[in-house]
């Protein structure tokens, strides 16, 4: 187990270090998210009253779209010069490689959300109550999205049409997350009964549990027979 954690750290730290030096993923993802928020403001903002209705959808569209930008860049390094085979040839188990890549992706996506969500709250003059439920919805939703997304981003990293194919296969699968996330956000913005949000949180958590384990398990048989 100790060795696994060590392996995890090696791959994870490698991604963080590359990101700190190039800032490729965070910059593209962050700028795109910023742009989306601004465009959505022009498209939807009328007054604080009505923005409470639109804001959940806008938040999750921004998260998923910007997250997709990150997914397309996530394996850029590994794709060059066949580095993914190199990483997989190391004595690190492929599953650990996948978990480390997915956690890196999760970290970047969460950082993007830390930038985006306060901006949305400001631009749309939102009042989030209670914050804990909102944040757990956002976190759980992002976890599921990142693990499923990383799996297919890894598989399609060498494909010519990956920019189209990744969202094409990831979005339909994560629909429960999007529906649940939007519902949870709607509850905290509109003072709906909290039980409703808890029900959706349970659904997203169940989705995460199943799909995160499925993604971790599938990585190895999918990448090589």
């Amino acid at each position: 187990m100790n060795q696994h954690i060590q392996h995890f750290w090696v791959v994870f730290r490698k991604d963080i270090r590359i990101e700190l030096r190039t800032r490729e993923i965070l910059l593209t993802m962050g700028l795109f998210a910023l742009l989306l928020v601004v465009v959505f403001s022009f498209a939807f903002y009328t007054d604080a009253e009505r923005s409470r209705i639109y804001a959940p959808g806008i938040l999750w569209t921004t998260v998923v779209f910007s997250g997709t930008i990150g997914l397309n860049r996530l394996f850029e390094r590994e794709n060059e010069n066949g580095c993914l085979s190199g990483v997989l040839l190391t004595p690190i188990s492929p599953r650990m490689v996948f978990v480390a890549k997915a956690m890196g992706n999760l970290l970047f996506t969460l950082l993007m959300e830390i930038l985006t969500v306060p901006l949305l709250v400001m631009f749309f003059s939102l009042d989030i109550q209670p914050v804990g439920i909102f944040l757990s919805g956002l976190l759980l939703g992002t976890v599921g999205f990142c693990f499923v997304g990383t799996l297919f981003a890894a598989m399609l990293s060498a494909a010519r049409m990956k920019e189209v194919l990744v969202p094409l296969v990831v979005y339909p699968i994560i629909v429960p997350i999007i529906i649940g996330g939007v519902k949870v956000t709607a509850v905290v913005l509109n003072d709906y009964p909290v039980e409703e949000a808890l029900n959706w949180l349970k659904l997203i958590a169940g989705f995460d549990l199943l799909f995160v384990s499925l993604a971790i398990w599938l990585f190895e048989p999918m990448i090589a027979p």
Partner: peptide, 19 residues
Amino acid sequence: GLGLMGAPAYYFIKVAVDK
């Protein structure tokens, strides 16, 4: 891999859209 994921996804989508 996607085909396999499709079955549990079908179940979760069903629960979600029903709700």
